[in-house]
Design a protein around this nucleic acid. Sequence first.
DNA 1: CTCGATCCATGACTTTTGTCATGGCGGAGT
DNA 2: ACTCCGCCATGACAAAAGTCATGGATCGAG
Lengths: 201, 201
Amino acid sequence: MIDVLIVEDQTLLRDAVSALLSLEPDISVVGAVGTGADALDAAARLRPDVALLDIELPDLDGLSVAEALATSLPSCRVVIVTTFGRPGYLRRAMAANVAGFVLKEAPAAELASVVRRAHAGEQIVDAALALSTLREGDDPLTPRERDVLRAARVHSTVAELAEHLYLSEGTVRNYLSSVMHKLGARNRAEAIATAEQKGWL
Amino acid sequence: MIDVLIVEDQTLLRDAVSALLSLEPDISVVGAVGTGADALDAAARLRPDVALLDIELPDLDGLSVAEALATSLPSCRVVIVTTFGRPGYLRRAMAANVAGFVLKEAPAAELASVVRRAHAGEQIVDAALALSTLREGDDPLTPRERDVLRAARVHSTVAELAEHLYLSEGTVRNYLSSVMHKLGARNRAEAIATAEQKGWL
DNA sequence: CTCGATCCATGACTTTTGTCATGGCGGAGT
DNA sequence: ACTCCGCCATGACAAAAGTCATGGATCGAG
């Protein structure tokens, strides 16, 4: 019997997947939660064999949860289940040593099989996603550039950014300019969009 | 027996919901598709009693599908099932005479009940969402302002916008400025974000 | 150690964005 | 018919955003 923990913020999908997996004779859904904090909590208590993690969560993101689980409950195999095939996500996930990476575009029938294979020790990655990750270059941003770009999602004027980051306005502009150049974007908004789209933030 | 058509682009959720509803003794899932075009096609062929529509679809959006269904198959009750509680969506949905509006945050158990009530002729609206829609003011944008803002999501420079819309650059700036003022945004990106967030595009 | 490469940081300069005052047009109300 | 008001449109002006050349700090490779 494989004990599974489901972590997914959309209640509807969480319930539906939970019901679906419960129908499998060799799988037992021992928990289903909607936040990263609850996930870590539940994992510690229930010690599942496999955790299905969504990336978009209200508090932490799923990858952080995966990283935390890797140390706190190494016996638990982690499968990321997410909407978007962002190459950056896949890289980070591989670094966190996850067992599998499945898109929500996949048919539901596949899910049980993925759980079994993950439990058996296999590494499962959606083929199309793996390809696009190879095709995409690596994240070209330096750490500081990433910081600034990330901050730019919230603070919309350069003055605010400069204050928040303790930098001169010129420096902030320079970072953003450099980022835009690297990403082939023509303004800040475009740069944020493409970086987000590739999962580089 | 209630014949249901499911329209949802994420295969995983579509399959799961389909399986879940099929378990209900009085509900029969006669079709499950992932695009707006397929939805209209399937509806015409299968003549379902109730259609569950996601709003975010790859081709048309769910609300357009709802509007089309209202004329092409008036016997079919439409229930919108979506991720985001955008007040603008709810208004448009009500205008299209949909039978219900449910969030994906809702527990799965509710879904079957909503299908039954919709089929029985009830109007079902998520309470929290209805409240927030009342609290939010109406869409303050003029048609032209909406046009320009919508175009601004794609074309990132004013020059491009002006060319695409056959307007002078000054005019385009003026519209955007007016929109920003109305939405309390401090730049174009912020304006687009809040308008999208309220479902006004 | 020294050289080169890379990242971090800055201010001066250019281009683009956002604001403002203004005017034409068409419909609702008196 | 006239006036008022909101929408559409424009160009001149002010305020941001984006570019460029430059310099110091750090870290490996020779």
